[in-house]
């Protein structure tokens, strides 16, 4: 048998292919004021326990797996199980200890408070 054919046959025998979930970036809104940065991320169908929010070395990563139950046969399909993944760079001035996350109606709300040192400060001018 030809060498190139052998390679082809090998390739077909390969069974490593497993059904992988799509990785989808959730739509986000990002707001900021002097106190904090606020992130809204749309993650419909993801249960609280399946969401993870990590801040490591200036990178905020959110991920969540959607597991929808299927009863009966699907006759029409517009959305499927996905893994929502998105990474952001956050400034070092975020107080990592005080980050709060809330899940409401499939929207993840992240409050990233700025550390005291990073907040704007008005300097009082002393008269001599």
């Amino acid at each position: 048998m030809d060498r190139s054919q052998e390679i082809t046959k090998q390739e077909e025998k390969n069974i490593e292919k497993t059904k992988k979930l799509y990785e989808v970036p959730p739509a986000v809104d990002i707001y900021e004021n002097e106190e904090e940065i606020l992130v809204y991320a749309d993650m419909p169908g993801v249960v609280k326990d399946d969401i993870s929010v990590d801040i490591d070395n200036g990178t905020l990563s959110i991920s969540g797996v959607r597991k929808l139950s299927v009863n009966g046969s699907i006759t029409y399909e517009e959305f499927s199980n996905v893994e929502y993944v998105r990474n952001f760079s956050v400034p070092q001035t975020i107080d990592v200890e005080k980050v709060e996350a809330e899940l409401k109606n499939g929207v993840l709300q992240l409050h990233l408070p700025k550390s005291e040192a990073a907040k704007p400060r008005q300097i009082e001018i002393k008269t001599a």
Partner: peptide
């Protein structure tokens, strides 16, 4: 989705 006695519908309505 359709099963014998029911139709089931899922809709993505975040927020």
């Amino acid at each position: 989705m359709e099963s014998g006695d029911n139709f089931e519908i899922q809709a993505e309505v975040p927020g």
